[in-house]
Amino acid sequence: MKILIIEDDPSLREIMSRALKQEGYVVEMATTFAEADSKVAGYSYDCILLDIMLPDGNGLQLLEHIRKLGKRENVIIISARDSLEDKVYGLENGADDYLPKPFHTAELIARVRSVLRRGRTAGELALSIGNVVLRPDSRSVQVAGEPLVLLKKEFDILLYFMQRPHHMVDKAVLAEAVWGDYADDADNFQFVYAQIKNLRRRLSQAGATIEISAVYGFGYKLAEKEE
C-alpha cells in the first residue's frame, strides 16, 4: 500500500509519515503544489493525503488535476480550515474523506484504513478483529459467528476501538467521539469507565478473542487477547 503525503509543514509531515510507516504503509512525501503535481502525474498511489493550503497553490486544484488525469486514487483532504464549503467542494470533487486539523494520529490511521478498505471491498464495510465482526451500516456485531446485542453507547465505543486497533485511545477523546462535543471536559470520566466495564463484560461473556485494556490509567487500547 503506497501513500502520498502532500503537506508543507515539515514537522507534521514527519509525524504523519512515521505513523503510517509504523502501520506498514509505504510513504512518499511532497511539500509543494508543483512537486505533488509531478508525483501524482508520474506515479500511482493507493491513497493521497492532501493538505489544501499549500504555499504555491490550492490543494483543491490538485484534486481536480488528479480527477482529470483519470486516476482512481483515494484522496483524503486535510485542512486547517474546518469549513463546510471546502468539505462539500472536496467531497463533491472526488475526495473520499475530509480530516480537519488538528487530528489525532489514531484518527488519521483510522481514516486511511477506512478509505482503503472501502476501495477494496466496494461497500462491504465490516470491521473484523479476532473473532469479532462489526458492521457499522447495520449496527450489528458478531462474535464467533453469533450475534451480540449491545446498547447504543456500547456499540459506539466498540466501533471507535475497532477502527483504531492497537492504538491507545485517550478516554477524553473517546468521550468526545461517543458522547458528543464537550463531553471531554467532564469533571470525571465515571460514565466512560461504566460503559467500558459493561462492554468488557459482554465481550468476554460472548467469548470474544479481543480485549480492551487500560493504558496507564488515562486511555484504552483494543487488541487481540494474547494466548
Binding site: 514537522s11 507534521l12 504523519m16 486539523k101 488538528p102 496507564y216 486511555g219
Partner: peptide, 24 residues
C-alpha cells in the same frame, strides 16, 4: 485560529506517539 491548527496537530501527534511507545 487557522494558523494555530497545524502546530496544535503536531504537538498532539507527538504526544500521542510518545504515549504509544512502551518505553515510557
Amino acid at each position: 485560529s487557522h494558523e494555530l491548527q497545524t502546530p496544535l496537530a503536531i504537538i498532539g501527534n507527538r504526544i500521542e506517539w510518545l504515549m504509544n511507545s512502551s518505553s515510557l
